[in-house]
């Protein structure tokens, strides 16, 4: 009996701890939402209040009609989409080669793809700026999405390599007996099998591009290519910050990401931990 009581008490303590941690995790986002629906006079109330008596959607209206955010949304979507397409084609086929073929230099090349995921963007930023400038692609969406391949290519290669390795070779062999060549097998047999995995990889690449700040900060200049992180950071760098509008914009750019994440959560978590727990 004593043991049961003890275990009930420790369970209760753990629930309290977890609830407390969840509250801490959610405080910043909660404060963003709380501020975003306040009237200007309530935003600087002392002491601050969590729930306003006079909620308003004015900040959201301001952001939608009078800021660079809607254009930035469009830019981010286009840049993200281009990045995903390029990196799935190039990175996906490289991942396939790593998973299926024996070749000299395989080890060195796979180390290279793994290491490149850890390169500091501030280091690559300087040469990339001058290169993209030479190509005349500063402040263009295509220029930024080329730069984002630096992040997504190694990641997609590494992720798809793992997914392809998960499919038994026999499936492909029987397809080749039936007269499919490698490319046909890849497209007709493997792709349908890997649909959820490819979707996850694509979404992961999209989110990385959507969230990326350092490169976008030096490669974009105007509304022609500015993405959401840059547009948001400009809200809070003005001399006088309109915190209501800033928080409304922050809420608006976070929501699509949270939804995308919830959609792929299961596969995403598997992908993230697969490499690490294999031993």
């Amino acid at each position: 009996m004593n043991k049961r009581v003890k275990s009930i008490i420790s369970d209760a303590l753990i629930y309290i701890f977890l609830a407390f941690m969840v509250i801490i995790i959610l405080i910043p986002l909660g404060w963003v939402l709380s501020t975003s629906i306040k009237q200007e006079v309530d935003i600087f109330a002392k002491p601050p209040v969590w729930i306003t008596d006079n909620p308003t959607l004015q900040s959201y209206r301001d952001v939608l009609t009078g800021s660079g955010i809607p254009k930035a949304f469009l830019n981010s979507t286009i840049v993200g989409f281009m990045t995903v397409v390029f990196s799935l084609i190039f990175g996906g086929s490289a991942g396939y080669a790593f998973a299926r073929f024996k070749f000299r230099g395989k080890k060195v090349l796979s180390l290279y793809f793994l290491m490149s995921q850890m390169l500091p963007l501030t280091v690559l930023m300087i040469p990339l700026y001058y290169m993209i400038n030479d190509w005349g692609l500063i402040d263009t969406k295509i220029g930024l999405s080329i730069a984002h391949l630096v992040i997504t290519m190694p990641m997609v290669t590494w992720m798809t390599k793992g997914y392809f390795q998960g499919i038994p070779k026999e499936i492909e062999e029987s397809a080749s007996v039936d007269g499919c060549n490698t490319l046909q097998t890849l497209i007709r047999i493997l792709m349908p099998l890997l649909k959820p995995a490819i979707a996850t990889t694509g979404i992961y690449a999209f989110v990385s591009s959507w969230n990326e700040f350092a490169l976008a900060n030096v490669l974009t200049r105007t509304d022609a290519s500015r993405t959401v992180p840059i547009s948001l950071s400009e809200f809070s760098s003005y001399f006088k910050v309109d915190w209501g509008d800033t928080m409304a914009a922050a809420a608006m750019i976070t929501i699509p990401i949270v939804i995308l994440f919830m959609l792929v959560q299961k596969h995403f978590v598997e992908g993230l931990t697969a490499g690490a727990v294999k031993g």
Partner: peptide
Amino acid sequence: KDEKKALIYLLPGFIVTALLIIYPLYYI
């Protein structure tokens, strides 16, 4: 035979990353 196939599938991705990663590292 494997190496020929690997080359075809690997080359585009390798060229892209060589241009965007190896070359910038050499540059800096």
